[in-house]
Amino acid sequence: MSQSTITFRIPDDEKELVSEYAKAHNSSLTELYRNAVLDKIEDEIDLKTLQNAIKISKEKKEMGISQDEMEELLNEV
């Protein structure tokens, strides 16, 4: 798999904070930044998926149930 390099600038105090965080979590700066960006992208995709599901549910005039009702149904299985 080919790889690319991305360079960006951050203030020295932020770099120190991020470096210490990475060190405390036994992670490299590369791993930390890559995971943070990918997590952010995944969260945004998940949010858009949820919003779309809610929109479709409203258009179909579907009725939801409470968590308690769902747990009762699951306990019956």
Rank of each mutant, 00 (worst) to 15 (best):
S66M: 10
Q51M: 08
E44H: 06
I45T: 02
L74T: 07
E31M: 04
S57F: 07
A53P: 06
E31Q: 09
L17G: 03
I65A: 04
Y33S: 06
D12I: 00
D43H: 11
N35Y: 04
L17M: 09
E20K: 08
E76D: 15
N35W: 02
S66K: 11
L17N: 13
Y33L: 10
E44G: 02
E71K: 09
T7I: 03
D13A: 06
D39L: 11
K58C: 01
E16T: 07
E42Q: 09
L73E: 15
E20N: 14
E71N: 15
N75A: 15
K40H: 10
K61G: 12
E20W: 03
T49I: 05
L50P: 00
L38E: 10
L38M: 11
V18Y: 06
T5F: 06
E59K: 09
T30G: 10
Y21S: 00
D43I: 06
D39I: 02
E59H: 07
E62D: 13
Y33W: 12
E69H: 08
T49C: 08
E14S: 05
E69K: 12
K15M: 05
V37E: 02
L74W: 12
R9L: 02
K40N: 09
T30P: 11
D68C: 12
H25I: 06
D43K: 12
S4Y: 14
Q51A: 04
E20G: 05
K48E: 07
L32H: 10
I56H: 07
K23F: 10
N35R: 05
M1S: 03
S4I: 04
E69W: 11
E42C: 00
Y33Q: 08
G64E: 03
Q67Y: 15
V18Q: 10
N75H: 14
D68A: 13
A53H: 10
S19W: 04
E44S: 05
S66T: 14
I65M: 12
S4W: 08
L38F: 05
M63F: 11
M1L: 03
D13R: 01
Y33E: 10
S4Q: 12
N26I: 00
N26M: 05
E62V: 08
M63L: 15
G64D: 07
I54F: 14
D46M: 04
T5P: 01
Q51S: 04
E71F: 09
E69R: 08
I56T: 14
V37D: 00
S19N: 04
M70K: 14
S28W: 01
A36W: 12
E62C: 07
L29D: 01
L32Q: 09
H25C: 02
K48H: 11
Q51W: 13
L32M: 08
L32S: 02
L29F: 07
E44M: 05
N52H: 11
